[in-house]
């Protein structure tokens, strides 16, 4: 932990960065994100086993972007987010200073996207066995059972949009949900409006979700939103040979045509 604080202090002192996004102690026993702009704030950085969530969602937030040059403490999910955002031209190489805490608590700096790509090739990017089991359970359901399952889950939704705010891939200035001329997606949190919103969200994340699970973590109603987008990871991989967030210059699987693309979904 000291190594991290020392490193960030040095970065702030020599003006390599203007702010650092890391983990800090929340008001309860929970961990929160802190944005260290001074040496004093940097001293509050922590890194404990509880520090697992994906901080990269903050990188594109208007308020954070205006702090100046940013540094970030990234985990594997955050690195993948950064790669995906780079492929969508949202982050340029060298724009963000990226630190990673290794298993032995030592620090790794990523000087460029290439080194991140090399790192991710060896990293474990799979969803957890528990999540896998839950998806298999859903996929084993009949179509009507599945429909009922998700409708029941979506019934709980209060349209707080916490999932949208937490997702590092939901960076649009104006979400389709907020477009009211014309209003394709109803804003009220009734059954049909909820379904429309969540289907839209899942489709917008098809081939882009990097399975960090922040949507489900953020949901105050405990809807397993991550499973919805995770279910799309496999079809994209088997159908188009693409995995999101692995390469900075990747081209979106659903926007390109390759002669060897499988066309088995065309009836």
């Amino acid at each position: 932990m000291n190594e991290l604080i020392n490193k960030v202090t040095k970065l702030l002192n020599d003006k390599t960065i203007d702010a650092f996004i890391g983990y800090g102690q929340g008001s309860t026993d929970r961990v929160r994100a802190i944005f260290a702009r001074t040496v004093e704030q940097a001293s509050k950085l922590i890194y404990t086993p509880a520090c697992t969530f994906n901080l990269s969602g903050y990188l594109l937030k208007h308020e954070v972007k205006h702090l100046g040059k940013l540094g970030i403490l990234a985990n594997v999910a955050a690195l993948r987010s950064i790669m995906q955002l780079a492929s969508e031209f949202q982050i340029k190489d060298g724009e963000v200073y990226i630190l990673f805490v290794n298993d032995d608590a030592s620090l790794t700096e990523f000087s460029d996207f290439q080194s991140i790509e090399a790192f991710l090739e060896k990293a474990n990017i799979d969803i957890t066995p528990d999540e896998k089991a839950r998806i298999e359970k859903i996929e084993a359901m009949s179509v009507s059972e599945r429909w009922e399952f998700w409708n029941k889950e979506f019934e709980k939704c209060i349209k707080c949009y916490a999932c949208r705010a937490a997702c590092p891939m939901c960076y649009c200035h104006r979400c389709t949900t907020d477009v009211n001329q014309p209003q394709w997606i109803p804003v009220a949190s009734h059954e049909r409006g909820n379904l429309d919103y969540h289907l839209m969200r899942a489709m917008h994340l098809a081939g882009r979700c990097i399975n960090c699970g922040e949507c489900a973590n953020a949901c105050p109603m405990d809807i397993p939103l991550n499973l919805l987008t995770y279910q799309l990871i496999d079809p994209i991989k088997t159908g188009f040979g693409a995995t999101a967030g692995m390469k900075a210059d990747a081209v979106y699987a659903l926007s390109t045509f390759k002669p060897d693309d499988k066309e088995n979904f065309i009836i």
Binding site: E88, F89, Q90, H173, R174, V251, Y252, L254, S255, T256
Partner: peptide, 12 residues
């Protein structure tokens, strides 16, 4: 513009 410059339109 509400365009965020992700340029998926460009590749498609």
């Amino acid at each position: 513009s509400s365009c965020v410059g992700c340029f998926l339109c460009q590749s498609v």
